[in-house]
Nucleic acid binder design. Structure first.
Length: 743
DNA sequence: GAGTTTGAAACT
DNA sequence: CAGTTTCAAACTC
């Protein structure tokens, strides 16, 4: 060995020289003199080659070496590998490798920095490491210390969107496992691709003390540069994945990360705030983490996904239950922790659901329900944010962002409301105070929630049948529910799931959104669609006989969609569209009046609307004048809300004048509205749900431009929540006066 | 808040 | 598939 070291140094310093030396008779002579040396080099070489791992020689020689690892891990991985490989290079055998390889090696060395600096012992460890590495990727085995880490690596590999980011991690993890001490030294070389990863590791570490030893040090040692780098990575990641590519969002996320660093990730994790979602998201699905922190991470990750991928529907669904629980207890800060815990638990349960087969439908159903719940969502997030605020308000922005983004994806109208609430949160420290306006708002909410995300009142169904709105929506019952003998609770998750399966077996679409937007008709042409009354339609259609499809008894009407051929209703007067397609006419008729009346109740003041229409008959160019209003009204009457929004928006778009100042404000973000049409395009029920199927309302409503302005809640139908959402909007309106230009 | 109406869900 | 019953929401007072 001793003899080797000097040679190694030589090799490292000048690879070319090495080859010459080897060839030189003197070298051969020396080798002959010391039988030991030759044997080792050969042995090593074989070992590596056999492994197909990048043997030192192989490394030099070529790309072949890289094998699986490199294929998976590009760029940075090479760097890491180089560092690892260095030690091998030291071996005499390695020196024997081709010159071309040497040149590569040098490059690598430059990147990797100091191979020479690595301790002599490394070679041995390195060989081991080399052996292990391939296995690590290929198989899930490992020493107790390394096992978890490797798993993570595997996971990541599977889910990896960005191999580069992961690669570094894997490399690090591996190195740490085998070379903890060495790694610490080389930590500088290693770079976590993303902050997310770092957090994820932290979370892992928390769970597994063993890992913490290995990783903890390295993490702690990570240079700030790495962090920044990771931040950048995350940023890029967001951009890549993210439809939400908003620079602001990313910036905030960065800020959040910084804040986390300042505060300490642990604290943040405890708070349930996790700016970075990356690994967490991935990890959770695998069920790796059971504890609250990990869950919180998951939650955050979930959010992230929504943000990044606009998996809003799913996200919302997952969150919903938790949200509900949290929403109720929001008032007390002390309770917040408990809430969070409960949320975590619930979420965990949800996550499990998420994994379970058949859940998809459930989730979808949730989505529909979620749409309703969007209002809650908004509030809920703030609550969490509040918790976060306890430590630092900085976190809030993320929540806000996330929430908005989510909503944006799912629901335009609700989103607006949320924004308001969020704005309040940020502005007012009072939120923390129970007396804060927010709290007041929440107080209002209970009623709203009850309506919005309807709370059931089941007495005999045990909330395990579709009679139960909660169950039908795929959500657990919560406090507001007045149900009796309720089994639709996390505690009875098994029962709930079993029941679900049973129901699904009977009707696979039982939990799917009842209202489906027709891809074709729906979307943008909805105004035109008035021709086809129900571009968005109820799946099965209604069977109304006495309500004339003008009351919420009618699921079509309730869902804000017109009746279709599927309906067996009698005397259909559905304002959204009659079975026979004579939608508009109806609007003018009784239904329209009724709707208008209801509008009044809502405080929408149909008067204004009418006045507007009169003043601006052209406001709704797409829709026939008569129809436009009625339809809009239609939407309102039921929930008092969502539909109205869209309608308002449309009107507002055309004429901000009368409608008003306050109302217009709410409508504000046009972008959100833009999304719905896209959603409409997706025909698949599931996707729609996930996306947050647009409600008929939104579809119906037309922007002044003729474009559909409104919201997405496709499923408004189901949605009591929509209703609530609208209410919120109305309420929120006052808050936004500033936004509305005063005329 | 109690009672009625209504139509979906569930059952046969 | 049709008819009946059960159920809970929607509605009315």
């Amino acid at each position: 060995m001793e003899m080797d070291t000097p040679e190694r140094t030589h090799v490292v310093s000048s690879s070319t020289a090495i080859s010459k030396v080897e060839e030189s008779p003197v070298f051969n002579f020396l080798n002959n003199l010391s039988p030991i040396k030759p044997a080792k080099p050969v042995h090593l070489t074989q070992t590596f080659s056999s492994l197909t791992f990048a043997s030192p020689p192989a490394i030099f020689t070529s790309p072949h070496i890289s094998s699986d690892r490199e294929s998976r891990f590009l760029g940075r991985c090479q760097t890491v590998n180089i560092s690892e490989q260095k030690s091998p290079s030291k071996n005499v055998d390695k020196s024997s490798t081709n010159e071309g390889d040497e040149s590569e090696l040098q490059d690598n060395l430059e990147k990797g920095k100091s191979i020479a600096s690595t301790p002599v012992e490394q070679p041995t460890g390195h060989t081991e490491f080399a052996n292990e590495v391939p296995h690590t990727f290929m198989y899930d085995f490992g020493s107790p210390d390394c096992g978890p880490i490797r798993k993570v690596g595997l996971r990541r590999c599977q889910n990896i969107d960005h191999p580069q980011q992961e690669d570094p991690k894997n490399n690090q993890t591996e190195q740490r496992c085998d070379w903890e001490s060495l790694v610490s030294d080389a930590a500088d070389l290693l770079i976590f691709s993303s902050p997310n990863d770092a957090e994820a590791f932290r979370g892992i570490i928390q769970k597994s003390p063993g890992l913490e030893r290995g990783l903890g040090t390295s993490l702690s040692n990570l240079p700030q540069n790495n962090i920044t780098d990771s931040q950048k990575m995350q940023h890029s990641f967001q951009l890549d994945s993210g439809e939400q590519a908003d620079a602001e969002v990313t910036l905030e996320s960065l800020e959040i990360k910084k804040a986390q660093e300042d505060l300490g990730c642990d604290d943040l994790a405890s708070m349930g705030i996790h700016p970075s979602g990356g690994l967490e998201d991935e990890a959770t699905p695998f069920g790796l983490f059971a504890d609250g922190k990990s869950l919180s991470n998951l939650q955050h990750g979930m959010r992230r996904r929504c943000l990044d991928f606009e998996m809003v529907g799913v996200h919302c669904r997952k969150k919903f239950p938790s949200i509900r629980s949290s929403s109720h207890s929001k008032d007390n800060n002390t309770s917040k922790n408990l809430q969070l815990k409960s949320l975590n638990n619930k979420r965990g349960g949800e996550s499990s659901r998420f994994i379970l087969p058949g859940i998809g439908l459930h989730l979808n159903s949730l989505a529909s329900g979620n749409s309703d719940c969007s209002a809650e969502m908004v509030e809920i997030f703030p609550s969490e944010s509040q918790a976060a605020l306890l430590t630092g308000q900085e976190l809030l922005p993320t929540h806000m962002i996330s929430t908005t983004s989510e909503k944006g994806a799912d629901e335009s109208g609700d989103i607006v409301v949320e924004d308001n609430s969020l704005a309040l949160v940020l502005v007012d420290p009072e939120e923390l105070n129970p007396d804060s306006p927010r709290k007041k708002r929440r107080k209002v909410e209970p009623g709203e929630e009850a309506e919005a995300c309807k709370r059931c009142n089941c007495k005999k169904s045990k909330c395990l049948k579709l009679y139960c709105e909660c169950f039908a929506a795929g959500v657990y019952c919560i406090e507001p529910c007045a149900c009796q003998d309720c089994f639709n609770k996390p505690i009875h998750e098994d029962t709930v799931l079993a029941t679900r399966k049973q129901i699904e077996s009977r009707n696979p679409l039982a939990f799917a959104p009842k209202v489906i937007r027709g891809s074709d008709s729906n979307t943008e042409n909805r105004d035109e669609s008035m021709k086809t009354p129900a571009s968005a339609r109820h799946k099965r259609g209604c069977n109304c006989k006495k309500s004339s499809c003008l009351k919420k008894y009618c699921e079509c009407y309730q869902g804000g969609v017109g009746c279709s051929i599927n309906c067996r209703c009698e005397g259909c007067k559905n304002a959204f569209g009659t079975k026979d397609g004579s939608v508009l006419l109806v609007a003018d008729s009784e239904a329209g009046e009724e709707l208008a009346e209801k509008h009044d109740v809502i405080s929408l003041k149909p008067e204004n609307l009418r006045a507007e229409e009169q003043a601006h008959p052209s406001v709704l160019p797409n829709t026939p004048s008569g129809l436009s209003r009625p339809t809009e009204q239609m939407a309102f009457p039921t929930s008092k809300c969502k539909p109205s929004q869209s309608s308002f928006l449309a009107k507002l778009g055309n004429s901000t004048e009368k409608i008003g100042k306050s109302k217009l404000i709410i409508l504000a973000p046009p972008t959100k509205f833009e999304k719905p049409p896209q959603q409409l395009e997706g025909e698949d029920e599931m996707p729609q749900v996930l996306r947050g199927t647009t409600s008929g309302m939104s579809q119906k409503t037309a922007s002044p431009n003729g474009k559909r302005v409104s919201p997405p809640h496709g499923e408004l139908s189901s949605t009591p929540s929509l209703r609530s959402g609208r209410r919120l909007i109305l309420q929120s309106i006052p808050s936004f006066p500033s936004l509305t230009p005063q005329h």
